[in-house]
Design a protein around this nucleic acid. Structure first.
Lengths: 117, 117
DNA sequence: GTGCTGTCTAGACGTTCATCTAATCAGCAA
DNA sequence: TTGCTGATTAGATGAACGTCTAGACAGCAC
């Protein structure tokens, strides 16, 4: 696989309900959300993330009604967003999740328990 | 690890790392992520969510380099995604967050274990 | 009423995106 | 080598998106 250009990985870990983002943080976050802002990609991500193991592209594609190249394109978007990674082994290519990214987004959106104010 | 203290509220609340989404769930989720997939909207959301109170549009707009109508358009997108709501009072319009939506997304993306594997 | 301010709506314009087909690359087996 | 399969890349096309200007609307003050 060619080297992929990842968006800035770390930095922001304060929930948006606690502090507003500066423009650069917002750009980073929006870029990752954009990767999840497509029904097919979100479903791809959920399939890979829930597998508990790596998943072969050959097992993914039949679940969708779009062409193989389209799936490949969406997987590339997820890859470039740092949400998944992949490796070719022989004939097949396997994908697995990079959970740090999901955790980061989850933290970003988390809201303190709505207990007493 | 300490159980994540995120409030599980409504409808879809199984993290994608536990179960894959069906197409309908993916479409719902993607629609909300799309609302956050723009730098200006994500920053708007963070300003409103972090305010701890409602925010006047007149206090929001000066923070951005785009025109008033553009801000208005983005606020409408956030509104239609169920992320914020607003009310006109006299001359000014005030926005506040709807935290259930954020909680839902946060839960969706949460990763159960610190991924020891 | 007139005038002013704050916000939203309408329409246009250029860019970005999702999708397809066709072609290419990677690996395996005669 | 040739042939076949799985996956990605390249290029084209139509739809969706972000932004703008101009105009409309809501409310307040005079």
């Amino acid at each position: 696989m060619p080297k992929q250009e990842l968006v800035v990985l770390n930095t922001c870990c304060t929930p948006i309900s606690e502090a507003a983002l500066d423009p650069a943080q917002a750009a980073d976050g929006a870029a990752v959300f954009k990767a999840l802002a497509d029904p097919i990609r979100l479903r791809l991500m959920s399939i890979i993330a829930s597998a508990g193991d790596e998943v072969c592209v050959c097992d993914i594609t039949p679940n969708f009604d779009v062409s193989g190249p389209t799936i490949s394109h969406h997987l590339k978007v997820l890859r470039e967003a740092g949400l998944v990674d992949c490796e070719r082994r022989g004939t097949w290519v396997y994908y697995w999740p990079l959970p740090e990214r999901l955790t980061w987004l989850s933290t970003l959106l988390s809201v303190p328990a709505p207990t007493a104010v």
